[in-house]
Simulated assay, not measured.
Amino acid sequence: MSARSLSLVVIGFTATLLFGCNEAKGIYTLYRSSMVGDGMGIHVATFDAADGDAYNRENCDIATHLFAEQPGVQVKYWCEKGPFHK
């Protein structure tokens, strides 16, 4: 592989990493607790609209309150910054 080809590969790889990191910045994920109390967060929704961080955070917060205020709800809801993780 020539030095030029290697340079193009490195630039492409770096751009891919940077794009992935920037895209994750505005993502928020909504979780809920389990009824059996195992301490596990259960994925409810992911907010990753192109409108950015503040927009996604606000929508996640709104969803949190709407779910939690339903009659008979016995689980907790919360938002975390970033994509879904187990």
Rank of each mutant, 00 (worst) to 15 (best):
A3Y: 01
A3I: 01
R4F: 08
S5D: 09
L6H: 07
S7N: 04
L8A: 08
L8I: 01
V9P: 00
V10Y: 02
V10H: 01
I11H: 02
G12K: 00
T14A: 13
T14P: 00
A15Y: 04
A15T: 09
T16W: 11
T16C: 10
L17C: 12
L18Q: 07
F19R: 10
F19S: 13
G20E: 06
G20L: 14
G20W: 05
N22E: 07
E23Q: 09
A24V: 12
K25L: 13
K25I: 14
G26M: 03
Y28A: 03
Y28R: 08
Y28N: 11
T29M: 06
L30C: 11
Y31S: 08
Y31Q: 07
R32A: 13
R32I: 03
R32S: 15
S33A: 03
M35P: 07
V36W: 15
G37F: 01
G37S: 08
G37Y: 03
D38S: 13
G39N: 10
M40Q: 13
M40P: 00
G41E: 13
I42W: 06
V44I: 15
V44S: 08
V44N: 11
F47L: 11
F47Y: 14
D48L: 01
D48T: 02
A50R: 08
G52T: 03
D53V: 01
D53M: 02
A54C: 02
Y55L: 01
Y55P: 00
Y55R: 04
Y55G: 00
N56T: 00
E58P: 00
E58Y: 11
E58I: 03
N59F: 13
D61F: 02
D61I: 02
D61V: 04
I62N: 12
T64V: 07
T64D: 00
L66R: 15
F67S: 08
A68I: 06
A68E: 14
Q70L: 15
Q70N: 13
G72E: 14
V73F: 06
Q74S: 11
K76W: 12
K76G: 10
Y77G: 04
Y77Q: 04
C79F: 12
K81G: 09
G82R: 05
G82D: 07
P83M: 05
P83S: 11
F84N: 07
H85E: 07
H85N: 06
H85R: 10
K86R: 14
K86G: 11
